[in-house]
Design a protein around this nucleic acid. Structure first.
Length: 591
RNA sequence: CGGGAUGUAGCGCAAUUUGGUAGCGCACCUGUUUUGGGUACAGGGGGUUGCAGGUUCAAAUCCUGUCAUCCCGACCA
């Protein structure tokens, strides 16, 4: 049976809803695919459900191809498993928590690593049972601080999450590759543009991790790519360090008066005005900016750390979070400075210079402040810097790394800029925005260890299982597809996800038009096509055409005026091309 | 959590400045009309103006508080 517009639960809107900002969100609301139920929580209307089901179908087929088996967990889960992995705490405010009548704690699952791990532990206990890969397509709940753009970032959303279980690292690598391949097939079949980027494993722990990003202006993730094919999330970009050079023969460090230069900009201006170089002007890149950060552990422990970066770069908050995870990173507060009188705001440096030319370590575990000191990878031995002197209104010039100062380690947290070189030598990076539509990573043994998932190997010894986890944002894909496939008139779905294969418009008032449209619908269905039929009586053609364009089925057939010549119009929504064909050849035209 | 904006009919908005019967368009219902690009006309239903206090003869409008939503940022497997 065709989906009849005359009875379909649908009301299209002529005006943009005020609540929507981005194009895909507006169109999904206007065309009657979804309705907002609460911030970041959406009701699926018949049309939306059809599109979602199409995506799920492709996902299921490719999961089966990859050897994964479908299961289904509750979204409502008890606290205990999440306590075992410490995520009851680590997830913080993003976790939806609730209590039952006995005051026992429950949560709405934000992701299901624990449950999958426990399920395998529950049923399997031998290496002979492995490998196994399980998945589900299920609602997830995250109390996002700020849901965005309709389905793009919701608090309830549908995710396909798969988990692989292997005895060996090689097995994990294979399972990972199988899922990764499946993802490529899924996104290709769905007609989604994507790039695979190296990602930071983040709070999930584990090692190898890649994200599938769909390039988009409205994306929330920034990634980089090079002409030579390197692509990575900004959090994961490794800075290319220059080669260290000899410190021999470099001029000695000297303290210069630099009053009122607490910012890099004022410092550079002052240096050029009073300590001009003969060869070129000083730039911000000649300065070493020392930023004090506070790391707050999940348990609430606070540690100060100083990071030295070239003065022309800011510390990138996301890169810092990634580098220092699971700690939270925040700027040092006035209270932190008050507690460390050795730190002179605006004039912080790794060392202070004594009258006899010797240096005293200030930053660093060995320094007077005992504050851990880390350096940007670009600050290699032999590089010269203008740095704070730890005295107000004075900076040290010609301070040489490896001769005058050192650090406790490296912190690769400075911002990544367009033009920076790719770590694999594949050229200069460009920055782009993307929407995360999939994420694969090798979790390793973290969850298996925490939940004691072990199996007997062939020697009768217990071995901890190693895991991978693989997610696809199903409902987010609806938004991504809508965003990428539209024009000023409405949506234009790729055939693989369109709510129907063919959309027939009965444009006319004669019964003959409706009868012919009905007949054509049956013929299309007999040929295996799904059909939407606009059979609304007393609705003008203009309205029907407008709704057809808004709803976005790519293939439209208009039954109307041409009927007296035995013709209907076949209308390609994407190209706009419209041509008349004989009624009885319409079905073969759209094969 | 910080910044900004907004809450009036199902949706989009006006009326708030200067207190005085809450209005327009879309959608919806009835009738006539029109039928290849959102037809035209006539009639109609639908509102305790986010909520709670206060001022006043009188509050959508002024005052206080509160809640909610959206946008930017922070955050975000």
């Amino acid at each position: 049976m065709p989906t009849r517009l005359s009875s379909l639960f649908l009301r299209t809107l002529r005006e943009d809803p005020a609540e929507a900002e981005v194009a895909s969100h507006k169109l999904l609301l206007r065309a009657g695919y979804i309705r907002r139920a609460a911030p970041g929580v959406y009701t699926w209307l018949p049309l939306g459900l059809l599109v979602k089901a199409k995506i799920e179908k492709v996902v299921r087929e490719e999961m089966a191809n990859a050897g994964a088996q479908e299961v289904f967990f509750p979204a409502l889960l008890p606290r205990e498993p999440y306590e075992a992995t410490n995520r009851w705490t680590e997830y913080g405010d993003n976790l939806f928590r609730l209590q039952d009548r006995k005051k026992a704690d429950y949560l709405l699952a934000p992701t299901h690593e624990e449950m999958f791990t426990l399920l395998v532990k529950d049923l399997y206990s031998s290496y002979k049972d492995l490998p196994v890969c399980l998945y589900q397509i299920q609602n997830k709940y995250r109390d996002e601080a700020r849901p965005r753009a309709g389905l793009l970032r919701g608090r309830e959303f549908v995710m396909k999450d798969a988990y692989s279980f292997d005895l060996t690292d090689e097995g994990l690598a294979k399972a990972y590759q199988a899922q990764r391949d499946a993802y490529e097939r899924i996104f290709t079949r769905l007609g989604v543009d994507y790039v695979i980027v190296k990602a930071d494993a983040g709070a999930m722990g584990g090692s190898a991790s890649e994200e599938f990003l769909s390039p988009s202006e409205i994306g929330e993730d920034t990634f980089v790519r090079s002409p030579g094919g390197y692509a990575a999330n900004v959090e994961a970009v490794k800075t290319v360090a220059p080669a260290a050079t000899s410190t021999d023969g470099l001029p000695a460090a000297v303290v210069n008066a630099t009053p009122g230069t607490a910012t890099i900009a004022t410092l550079v201006d002052h240096a050029n005005a009073h300590f001009a170089r003969s060869d070129r002007a000083w730039t911000a890149a000649d300065t070493l900016k020392n930023v004090v950060l506070a790391l707050v552990s999940p348990e609430g422990k606070r540690e100060l750390v100083a990071v030295g970066v070239p003065g022309d770069r800011e510390v990138d908050a996301k890169r810092a979070e990634a580098a220092f995870g699971p700690n939270e990173v925040e700027p040092a507060t006035e209270a932190d400075f008050a507690a460390n009188p050795g730190l002179v705001k605006g004039y912080i440096g790794p060392v202070s210079l004594n009258a006899d030319g010797s240096v005293s370590q200030v930053l660093g575990l060995e320094g007077s402040t005992k504050i851990r000191y880390l350096l940007d990878p670009r600050v290699v031995d032999g590089t010269q810097w203008i740095s704070g002197s730890n005295q107000a209104d004075k900076h040290i010039f010609e301070l040489v790394k490896g001769r005058d100062f050192n650090a406790d380690g490296i912190a690769d947290i400075a911002e990544v800029r367009a033009g920076d070189l790719a770590p694999d030598g594949s050229g200069a990076l460009e920055l782009a925005r993307g929407i995360e539509i999939g994420h694969v990573f090798q979790l390793g043994r973290k969850y298996a260890e925490a939940l004691d998932l072990r199996v007997l190997d062939e020697n009768g010894k217990l071995q901890v299982v190693t895991m991978g986890s693989y997610g696809i944002g199903v409902t987010r894909l609806v938004a991504v597809l809508a965003e990428a496939n539209r024009d000023d008139k409405g949506l234009i779905w790729p055939e693989a996800v369109s709510p129907a294969d063919v959309y027939i418009v009965a444009a006319g008032k004669d019964d003959s038009v409706f009868e012919a449209a009905e007949k054509l619908a049956s013929e299309f269905e007999a040929a295996g096509k799904t059909v939407m039929l606009d059979d609304r009586p007393k609705v003008s053609p203009g309205v029907k055409f407008g709704d057809a364009e808004l709803i976005g089925v790519p293939n439209i057939v208009i039954v109307g005026k041409g009927l007296e010549n035995g013709e209907v119009d076949v209308w390609n929504r994407r190209t706009g091309e419209r041509r008349s064909v004989a009624v009885n050849s319409a079905v073969s035209e759209l094969k």
